[in-house]
Write a protein that binds this DNA or RNA. Sequence first.
RNA 1: GCCGCUGUGGUGUAACGGUAGCACAAGGGCCUGUGGAGCCCUUGGACCGGGUUCGACUCCCGGCAGCGGCCCCA
Length: 429
Amino acid sequence: MFRPPRGTRDYLPWEMWRRNWVIDRIREVFEAYGYEPLGTPAFESWEMLKLKSGEDIIREIYYFKDKSNRELGLRFEWTASLCRVVASHRELPKPFKRYAIGPVWRYERPSEKRLREFWQADVDIVGVADPIADAEVISVAVDALKRLGLEGFKVRINDRRILEAFVELLELPRNLSLDIFRAIDKLNKIGVDGVERELSKLGIPEEKRGKLMEMIDVRGEPEERLGEVEEILKHSELGLRGLEALRGVVEYSGRFGFRPHLLLDLSLARGLDYYTGPVFEIYLGDVSISIAAGGRYDELIQLYGGDPTPATGISLGVERIVATLQELGVLDDLRVGTEVFVASASNSVRDKAIEIAQRLRRAGISTDLDLMGRSLSKQLEYANRRGFRKVVIVGSRELEQGGVTVRDMETGEQRFIPLESLLDHLGPR
RNA sequence: GCCGCUGUGGUGUAACGGUAGCACAAGGGCCUGUGGAGCCCUUGGACCGGGUUCGACUCCCGGCAGCGGCCCCA
């Protein structure tokens, strides 16, 4: 028997209905905020994909050659393709707000919360340097999660420039800053001692390690904590700019309405190399697994050959969100699946059953009918197991009176319905 | 990519170096005009390849896949 390749999986209908429901809600929120869909290919040129990435990411890109020996790779997130499009379509009005929802691929070790093929739902704003854009993309993500019925999540924020300022102030080697950031980023996962160990592996002397740990160990209500940070950063222009951006995000968060979810965390770094300003990450409970993350990348579009253009964005991890919703039971009562089942009481009325099913279908009512020639009790058993809410029983007795029996599968209640009012009775969804 | 643990019908499991059993699911019957229960029948299995052995699902090796850790990340 064949199995899906490593790190991929099948989604059977019961799960796919729920998944699609989640994706539809996310898309609704994206569109409610005025983001527009943009379509880009699943595979891009290898050159383009690796342009902005460090070694670690490049290693995780699915790479292949086509029959003409072109070097290609599967997209591992949405940002590269967006930058390519923006760089080559200067006519796009600014701000350019686009969304994209679909699979991305990463060659890494799979586990339950990490697949090699997974969906990202991504929004980005291109052309706005002000933190209002960062605040808005956070707000979209927050509202999408709320729309799905999630509540107790937190949005951790930081600014890359603050971390860079720390490196600067402590006179740590600049070429190590990404490695240092990654080490810092693990604080929540491996603790202070763990991070210190990582830093010492990088050759950071003990005294500086201690100072750095102190600097990044700021976590909590943004308003309260930002003051403390200013004191540390007062001699760093870069750091102060980061601080100002964060202040902006915090301020706008009140207006956008996600202030209660906001948490300043100076140990948040995010792995991706290209962030230049605010970075953010949304998680729920388990701190090591984020369900959404993003940040500002003001230098990326020019890297792809476009005009220098500020940009910021956020990605939601669809599988992780679905898994979370399932764990919380949010999806249990979801009404999904086909609405109506048309059952035939006998073979002689089958043609009539087809006719009725077609009428319902053309009226937009999702309708199934018996294709197996089963007995009525088998049809009802089937309809019950499949979760149909209404069964239309077509039988010669009712047809003689010009109608059918409609059975409510939840209550068991049955009513005779004249054919001409069947559509009204079942109604559109 | 590295290290560790695991791999029995579709799913969940049992026993055993010598005939692979159970439950659920699926299809059917009891029941050709009424579902959720019950009883009965049917279909269907040792991840793959090699080795040890009279004999391997069982032991050994390799691959593949899953899980956990590292790395990285939604």
